[in-house]
Amino acid sequence: MMTTFTFTAQAAFTALYLAAAYLYLKYFFSVERRCGLLAARVLVAGLVVHLAALAVRIAHLGYLPIATVCDALSFAGFIIALAYVCIEKFSRDLSMGAFVAPIICIAQVISLLWFHPSGDLPVRYRSPWFEIHVSGSMFAFASFAIATIGAVLYLVLYRELHRKRPGRFYSRLTSLEQLDRVNFYGSLLGVILLAVAIFTGFNWMREIRASADLRLDARIIATWFTLAVYLTGLVVRRITRASGRTLSLLSIAGFILVVMAFAFEGISH
């Protein structure tokens, strides 16, 4: 019964995310603002359905359903969508939707194709530390993903401007400074959340093993490297007032490490 509900709900919000992605892309490649506005509304509708489905499942399971790859991916998509909607409301710019919404869709479609919802959770995972650790990691991942999209778009627009050949990105994207802000605040928030995730993960390990196990496995090394790269970017920027371009390049490098860390996470589980 719950599995049917989960699948139906997931199909419903995936359809909404797909519709939003289509409309955002149409807005980006045409100029019809109403497509962009409609896309924003459809994305919010997708988020609402997703949130409702999560609430029902949390009530049923008693914990945040992110124990399987399927659920983790879907939750990551949810967080990215949530973060993007906040950015969109703040910046009043719809152009980034054409790049963020497809990523949300990819996460949801893969999750739907590998549908395997979380069931009973082993006792060791039933800890508040673990929940904060995992959801903190997810939020950090979403922040880094948004920051990276901002960074890539920054570099594309920078290139168009520097080559004096304003093209589609010039006419559609928001300003360089705005993209830089998305990258900076996305990275900053990601670093804070990742630090929280590391701290709570450490506590959780101590809780279940009576002593913290700090083996330097590939996943932990990648996580520490990620934190180091993003921190370096932020500190370098703060101290030397490095250009947005430098931070963008560091941001992209950091995100490659984030993906590696998540890949090792998947392998280790």
Partner: peptide
């Protein structure tokens, strides 16, 4: 317009 595209 160029300035706006760079600085917002």
């Amino acid at each position: 317009e160029l300035a706006r595209k760079i600085f917002g």
